[in-house]
Design a protein around this nucleic acid. Structure first.
Lengths: 231, 231
DNA sequence: GAGTGGTCTAGACCACCCA
DNA sequence: GGGTGGTCTAGACCACTCC
């Protein structure tokens, strides 16, 4: 099938992990072992393990070896008004000890003012030519001691009123995407490079008028989003 | 700040891309150029570019060089009943030529029957001990000639009735996560290794009874999900 | 044929962990 | 101090593209 050595090695290790040959928390063979076992160079082994790290299956610590990742407790964020009681009643699978992992209040990381980035301008329905300024706020959301979310909000500068709070939102639209983190984000969220993050662009509307854009970036091994869909 | 050479190189290239020094579709300096310019080895340059590839900023083709990625047309999938007319009226930002990019009907990739994987069993509220069998169906969803979604559905085997269709769903719950693709998925979805995929686990309910689990895997540079949230 | 991206090898260095 | 993961170097090979 695939002739690339690192793909073969990764596939084999993944299968053994999923079969339970290496239990959760258990240690994989060391780099030297795998080099000898497969007759390949160090970098090739590293490539294979990097793949498994990106998949969230393996964690590596210098001096301690590669270990099968203990699934980090996942915070399932209910995005639309879910009746938590109903959830816990019939569908325990969706809530995992939510109380213990409720994110705390966001901690501010700074406020600045700058021209609206193109994507934000589009969502806020600002004319492109005018190069509107927006107030940019950065926050970090913690669960315990860990950062689980980086939030950047963009609020249009209203004409007469300078720092007026946005009009109360009647509803939101959320656009969900995924991407690799920038190195800075990877450091803040404490994920390895290449480990995907979820990006939610949340547009608050007051009637038909968009009043606020929030971009939420969260590590995908800490957070999952739960949506309720009718029909 | 960061002392790792490849991070510095990646940061610098990213900044120049975003400043427009290298326009969309434009070509970055070649590997040899960057090696000389930064005085590093080939692998270090490769690491930097790999990061940018994972971020979706750069695409590389042997013989043609590294080019600034043209953003692939994003398919914004409306997940809950969105009034498309309303969307296009007030919020054109959310629909991007939807008609042209509507995914076609899924093409079957096979049906089999196997014990329910643990996660699926949980969502279907099957007792763990019983090791229930489920009918597993795999599909590929195309947009034009490209695969944009891989769907695996799990349906409990009903006792008396063998291949009975599931009861009609009254509502769905969707759990959204992101992860790196398995090599096989990367090949099928035509994304580079390490490029994140979005995974939606969609549980269909008939009343309080879960009747079907669908796991949808989609390349995150082709698809974004749009949810409407009240309040 | 020359240049390019992608991968592999062989060897080295460092920070880290544990005995 | 020995083993480990992670990274970097230098050199090589292959498939590919363009001239």
């Amino acid at each position: 099938m695939h002739m690339r050595p690192w793909v073969e090695i990764a596939d084999e290790l993944r299968e053994r992990i999923q079969r339970g040959d290496y239990p959760i928390g258990g240690r994989l063979p060391s780099g030297s072992d795998l080099m000898q076992q497969y007759g390949v160079a160090r970098q090739t082994v590293q490539n294979a393990v990097d793949q498994l790290r990106a998949e969230g299956l393996v964690r590596g610590v210098a001096g301690r070896g590669w270990h099968v990742a203990e699934p980090r407790p996942v915070i399932r964020l209910a995005r639309n008004q879910l009746d938590l009681a109903e959830l816990t009643a019939g569908r325990a699978a969706f809530v995992s000890d939510a109380a213990a992992r409720t994110p705390t209040a966001p901690a501010s990381m700074g406020v600045r003012r700058e021209p609206a980035p193109p994507a934000v301008a589009t969502f806020l329905q600002l004319s492109v030519e005018a190069a509107h300024e927006v107030v940019v706020r950065e926050h970090a959301v913690y669960a315990g001691n860990d950062v689980v979310q980086l939030v950047t909000s963009y609020q249009p500068v209203s004409e007469g009123d300078e720092d007026a709070p946005p009009a109360p939102a009647t509803h939101h639209t959320e656009v969900v995407a995924a991407r690799a983190p920038r190195p800075r984000e990877a450091d803040l969220l404490q994920v390895s490079y290449g480990f995907p993050v979820i990006q939610v662009t949340r547009v608050a509307f007051a009637g038909n008028q968009p009043v606020l854009v929030e971009v939420e970036v969260m590590s995908s091994d800490r957070v999952q989003l739960v949506y309720q869909v009718e029909g």
